[in-house]
Design a protein around this nucleic acid. Structure first.
Lengths: 214, 214
DNA sequence: CTGCGTATATTCGTAGACGAGTATTCGGCA
DNA sequence: TGCCGAATACTCGTCTACGAATATACGCAG
């Protein structure tokens, strides 16, 4: 099958970045990553931790250095990153930063099927969305302000997140305006379709053969 | 376990939106969805088609209307959407449009661990990214221009995609400028860290306890 | 000193995603 | 008319992600 990455789960990257600092045992990785707020940056499911750590070890990206008990706690295995692991991590990051991949945000999916709702309902939903987006934007701003002493480069992913949320909010506001004043081409046909359930004749072929995007 | 949606795969929404128009058999759904370019809007894996259709049926969102053979082709089952299915679809779309959920774009993940690379390398990667983003932007523009006769509201997800790509490109360009002229706070520390492998003292506690984001 | 909530640390079962494979038919061309 | 490649239509087995369960230790309130 030859998949792209031997360990594809993003949690793998997070784990590598954690053990790159110093050797750790799995539970400690989770604590460190949680403390750093890495789960705001990537989709991390702690239920996958031991599976992923096992896979990383199987592929030689990390290796056990020590496996003993301290205090009365259950046995723990401490892992260290290998050269191969460091290479994999660097290459992975290079790819993530250098090569934009098609992404599928839920909102895009929603927009693409919004036709099943009425224009009025969609208008209301967009208003709701804007309110929630503004809350998120405020929260991100607060986070950045709170860390005024941390050099910006270390919070770059939060700045990015903020910029993207602002851009989305701006776009939604602009779109909403076109909805509200009725200036958006196609609104009438859409409303017609929703009232009667029939596809307006001038769009029939489109609907049938589909608006091929390419 | 009581998951959020009985059928969680986005392909399920796509299938519902296809059969909402008229009854179809699975393979036809795939053709229609492909023709409409829905796989640009959502992450659709055709390998999951029959599983998903089966699940939708199991939960009463679609039902078989006819199951026979035409011509000499293998037997096909034609499905129709049910009222419950229509309700589920509408509710699903409402959620996707009205409620922004945290998203985890790969770029954000990459930025959050860019520290493992050198500032110079990241600079080069950002340049590469911009070039590729511009290509995507051009392509999206071309797609929209090509469909000049289609009312804009029917291509809204493409407009959104375009706006988001442009916003990202703008952000990356701005960030790159700060990298290049060295004005971004923290660059020196980062470069220092990368040259010596040691965490600069003023950041030691940060690195250790982590920059808690909340 | 005893009980209990919280943090530590890990295992396991299973639902479901999806790649790869299979079988049949059709159209066209030699 | 007979062959081949493309399109049609679907099945199956693997693999993994991850939720939920488990178990022990620690701190502190009563």
């Amino acid at each position: 099958m030859a998949q792209r990455r031997k360990v594809g789960n993003m949690l793998g990257l997070a784990v590598l970045s954690a053990v790159a600092g110093r050797p750790m045992h799995p539970y400690e990785m989770a604590s460190v990553l949680r403390a750093r707020g890495k789960d705001d940056d990537m989709k991390l499911k702690w239920g996958s931790l031991y599976t992923v750590v096992g896979n990383l070890e199987k592929h030689g990206f990390i290796e056990a250095v020590e496996s003993g008990r301290q205090g009365g706690r259950p046995e723990r295995t401490v892992y260290r990153i290998t050269d191969a692991g460091y290479g994999e991590m660097a290459d992975w990051v290079r790819e993530l930063i250098g090569v934009p991949e098609p992404e599928f945000p839920r909102f895009k999916a929603g927009l693409s099927v919004m036709g099943v709702l009425s224009p009025d309902e969609v208008t209301a939903l967009l208003l709701e969305r804007i309110a929630l987006l503004e809350k998120r934007v405020a929260h991100l701003r607060a986070t950045l302000a709170e860390h005024g002493d941390v050099p910006r480069v270390f919070l770059i992913e939060t700045e990015y997140d903020l910029a993207m949320h602002e851009a989305e909010a701006a776009w939604v506001r602009a779109m909403l305006a076109e909805f509200t004043d009725g200036s958006l081409p196609g609104l009438a046909e859409w409303r017609e379709f929703h009232r009667t359930g029939a596809v307006p004749p001038e769009l029939a072929d489109l609907a049938e053969r589909g608006a091929t995007k390419d």
